[in-house]
């Protein structure tokens, strides 16, 4: 196993932390923070895989994912703002 493959696996190990926050909450914004971290780690994974595989096309995956993650977070923030007070 090369160094970069090991790095890829190490990066995968951060995902359980984010998933924990996504599942546990306790509020919806907390879940959005977890989701945001998952997509950020995915961007890093795509970029790192571009190194491991030697296919620079994966860099485009990282770019598209970053664009999408930003819009998703903004949309969720808008939703949270306008649905009013709620405990969940």
């Amino acid at each position: 196993m090369s160094f970069l493959e090991g790095a890829l696996i190490a990066l995968l190990l951060t995902l359980p932390f984010a998933v924990y926050r996504l599942v546990r909450g306790p509020t919806l914004p907390d879940r959005v923070v977890g989701l945001d971290l998952i997509t950020t780690v995915s961007v890093a994974l795509a970029a790192l895989y571009a190194l491991v595989s030697g296919q620079t096309a994966f860099l485009d995956v990282a770019t598209a994912l970053a664009l999408f993650a930003f819009l998703a977070t903004l949309g969720l923030a808008r939703y949270i703002e306008y649905r009013g007070h709620r405990e969940d």
Binding site: T27, L28, P29, V32, V33, D36, T73, L74, L76, A77, R78, I80, E81, R83, G84, H85, R86
Partner: peptide
């Protein structure tokens, strides 16, 4: 955006 929305929704 998220911090503001959370504060407004009462977190």
């Amino acid at each position: 955006a998220l911090g503001r929305a959370a504060y407004l929704s009462g977190v």
